[in-house]
Design a protein around this nucleic acid. Structure first.
Length: 467
RNA sequence: GGUGAGGUGGCAGAGUGGCUAUGCGUUCGCCUGCAAAGCGAAUCUAUAGGGGUUCAAAUCCCUUCCUCACCUCCA
């Protein structure tokens, strides 16, 4: 599998000979997560699902930033503690992402639980001459790290000239960034240099080193983290370890709305709670994977509505496969189907192997869906054919993290009985009474499909906008 | 201003030198008691403008225009 590396701007092979170690920059827990966060996390969730489906072990570490000025501000505003705020939004995070069918990462380290590791790292940087103590804190000396700017392709001189923030005169250079910030009010920790809090970037250097070592396979996050966050992480980590930090940097494009970036500061975010209520998890996942991960994707109601149609086809396909009749089919036909399924999976895999091209993989998936619906429509979808297709269909669904609504046995029996009653009435041409039963069934979110010789049913996921 | 990514049919979105991507939409049809869903056919040979290289370019080169992102916290 090849992934485009932001640092070298080349496609690099992912080393899968051992467990693939992935560090994903997660969220700062001061508010609800939104669809932008969801995209990044769904991309990485799908990536890990794909690798795992090929029998490759993955060690996915995703941090929570739970010490930050925004958290403290919010706590002050609500007259509570920073801890209360971060705990609340971590709970909120898991609630949202469980619903989005995102598999739990292998660990979710928190900044506040790794203060010691950060202090050790900062001390190491001071000892090696890369960091210094000043009036307001401990800073990283950017000029000491010769390769600074290599990830974001920025020149240090230009950063110094173009510094837009008010320059803190106590630093040696305006570009130097804080590793430790002195503070007197909670939350604060003791350190060899004085009470205070860690800077933003140091947590990821410390925690990735602790959990994944100093040269792991993939470091990921949103594109907006390239500068300064990931640039600074590289500076810290490589100055400390003396070796390359991550082998591949993988960055996910922004979610825009009306062509503009969705962000808290612009106030145009769509929370995950909102999109889940409106569209449901499958539509949201399909939407997030419908464009190449590296490019921006625009959130528009029309596009999401389109996605509902696509999802209905998948549901239709699923129930056709699940409820196919037990006819005996010709073996010649079966061989053709086997070949079709095999090619479909190869197309799907090739797309993902080639810089995780999910839109291309989705097109392979929808081709398979279409083929099934064609077979069903021409009354050729026998049990044996369904059984040939089902494993691959399920595998693709599982990689994409999609799940068709499940129906229990009681419900199945009830549906079968009602269908039988209705068909009896239909045979007697008592259509009004038959329609009453159909209505009764549709109230259970079951759609009936009248084929020539039998009536098929499917359970549809309820999608908020349709109500 | 600097840096980076882009501009593909009504829409979304692949393709990075030659072969119909794919999907949605729209119209008509099949199926049905009527629907729904599904299927079929039609629409759609598109590649920001201009130059160039080539037997051949959406794909390479030059140029113009436009969009977005990052340069400040941000997934």
């Amino acid at each position: 599998m090849r992934i485009l590396d932001t640092l070298t701007v080349t496609e690099k092979n992912v080393d899968t000979s051992n467990a693939v170690r992935i560090y994903l920059c997660g969220v700062t827990v001061y508010d609800e997560s939104h669809i932008g966060h969801a995209r990044t996390i769904i991309v990485f969730d799908t990536l890990r699902r794909y690798l795992e489906s090929n029998g490759i072990k993955v060690n996915l570490v995703q941090n929570f930033t739970d010490v930050d000025d925004k958290i403290i501000n919010r706590a002050n505003k609500e007259n509570t503690s920073a801890e209360e705020i971060s705990t609340r939004y971590i709970t909120n995070y898991f609630n949202d992402f469980d619903k989005l069918n995102v598999k739990r990462a292998d660990s979710y380290p928190k900044a506040t639980e790794h203060i010691t590791e950060m202090i050790n790292l900062i001390q190491g940087l001071i000892d090696k001459g890369f960091a210094y103590t000043a009036k307001n804190g401990v800073y990283f000396s950017v000029l000491k790290f010769k390769e600074y700017g290599k990830l974001s392709k920025k020149k240090i001189e230009e950063l110094i000239v173009g510094a837009r923030v008010e320059v803190d005169e106590t630093k040696n250079e305006p570009v130097d960034f804080a590793l430790w910030k002195f503070a007197d009010d909670s939350p604060i920790w003791e350190s060899p240099w004085g009470k205070g809090r860690p800077g933003w970037h140091i947590e990821c250097s410390a925690m990735s080193l602790k959990y994944l070592g100093s040269n792991f396979e993939i470091h990921g996050g949103g594109r907006d983290l390239i500068f300064p966050h990931h640039e600074n992480e590289i500076a810290q980590s490589e100055s400390f370890s003396g070796i390359n930090f991550a082998k591949i940097w993988m960055h996910v494009g922004m979610v825009t709305i009306n062509g503009e970036k969705m962000s808290k500061s612009l106030g145009n975010t769509k929370s995950i709670d909102f999109v889940l209520n409106k569209w449901g998890p499958n539509i949201v996942r399909l939407f997030c994977l419908s464009g190449h991960y590296s490019k921006p994707i625009d959130y528009s109601e029309d596009l999401l509505k389109e996605t509902i149609t696509k999802w209905r086809q998948v549901e239709n396909c699923y129930f056709e496969l699940a409820l196919a009749d037990n006819f005996i089919s010709e073996s010649e036909e079966l061989e053709k189907i086997k070949e079709m399924v095999r090619e479909s999976k190869i197309e799907f895999d090739n797309a993902l192997d080639s810089d995780f091209n999910t839109p291309l993989a989705l097109s392979a998936f929808f081709k398979l869906v279409k083929s099934v619906n064609q077979l069903a429509s021409s009354e050729k979808l026998m049990r044996s054919i369904s059984d040939t297709i089902l494993p691959t269909f399920h595998q693709m669904l599982s990689i994409l993290g999609l799940s068709v609504i499940q129906v229990n046995e009681d419900e199945k029996n009830k549906i079968s009985n009602l269908i039988e009653q209705r068909n009896m009435l239909r045979n007697q041409k008592k259509f009004q009474e038959a329609d009453v039963i159909r209505k009764q069934i549709s109230d259970m979110n079951i759609i009936l499909i009248d084929h020539k010789n039998k009536t098929l049913w499917m359970k549809q996921e309820k999608i908020g906008i349709e109500n």
